[in-house]
Simulated assay, not measured.
Amino acid sequence: MTRRIKRMGLFFIVLVLIAVLFGGRFYRYINAANVDLSHVETPYIYIPNGASFSELKAILEGSGVIKDMVSFEWVAQKKEYPNRIKGGRYKLEDGMSNNRLVNMLRSGKQEPVNVTFNNIRELERLAEIVGGKLMVDSAELMSLFVNDEYIGTLGFDRYTLPALFLPNTYQLYWNTDARGFVKRMKREYDSFWTSEKQSKAREKGLTMIEVAILASIVDEETQMVDEKPMVAGLYLNRLKRGMRLQADPTLKYALGDFSIKRLLNADKEVDSPYNTYKYAGLPPGPVRIPSVAGLNAVLNAKSHKYLYMCAKEDFSGYHNFAKTLSQHNANAARYRRELNRRGIRR
């Protein structure tokens, strides 16, 4: 009897030891530190949309941040994570346990990315900037930018689409796709165009898109924020009188070369709807993505009687304004003399 009791006691002790051993192992699998960031430059991992569990493991192994992949996989399986993978940019913490890591990845709680764009002339450049920050490819963005059917549903066409984008810094999730990016920009556009701003546009006889077109011209004419309302007022004066804008930025756009410093009379003969020396009214679309300062300059244009302007001969970036053609010609002559003195022919 005593031996039997001893054997049973020994058996139970063995069971307890086994339980402790495996329990300790499972505890370590779940709660022990398994993320080591001591040797990596960035704490982020990037998981593409639609990634499989095998692809996720390859990403983690490639990053070298997981100390024990076996334990990670065991916890992931127990939490049914392989069937609930969510793409995104995730910030890891040094010493994270498998439990915390899987919970974070499974929840989709990712860190947003700051996407900043300003001073952009071409949509191709915008696509490059956004594609360099997000998962979406720049080619995919450009394909959407020229999708007439899709952008038509937003109230734009391929010529007016630059008016949609407002230069700023935006927080976006890394796995935002092309349509997701454009939808976000449309929300920002709608938020910008308050009823007050729309009312100001109507008072000037302009649509929201026409404000953006004129703002793009103003932005190209002057980088001086304090001068933009003056320039906007001048172009509004010409529009009201039915005068051709004769805006150099539109001609440079038509010629496809904004580096030109001196336009020639022959340039003004180019047959393009963007050539405002040849055609009256606004061009079909913005000549660049307009700045918020440019948009506000048009909406709050300065009231005056100027109809002409010419860059100042001191090359300060400001302009001489004139009410009459004779005054303008005198200003232009001084500027041409300075161009000649500096040897600027083109």
Rank of each mutant, 00 (worst) to 15 (best):
R4K: 13
G23S: 09
F26M: 05
E41M: 02
Y46Q: 09
A51C: 13
F53Y: 15
A58D: 14
I59P: 13
I59N: 13
S63Q: 14
I66H: 04
E73R: 12
E80G: 03
K86M: 08
K86H: 11
L92E: 05
E93W: 05
V102C: 08
S107G: 12
V113L: 05
V136T: 11
S138K: 15
N147C: 13
G155P: 02
P162Y: 02
T176P: 00
R187D: 15
F192E: 10
K197H: 07
Q198H: 00
T207Y: 05
M208P: 04
I209E: 13
L234I: 01
R244A: 09
R244G: 03
Q246W: 11
T250M: 11
A254F: 11
K268W: 03
Y274G: 11
Y279N: 13
Y279P: 08
A280M: 09
G281M: 11
A293E: 10
G294I: 00
A297P: 03
A301R: 08
A301Y: 07
A311S: 13
K312D: 14
E313H: 03
D314S: 10
G317P: 03
Y318K: 12
L325Y: 14
L325C: 01
Q327H: 07
Y335G: 04
L339H: 08
I344F: 05
R346W: 08
R346K: 07
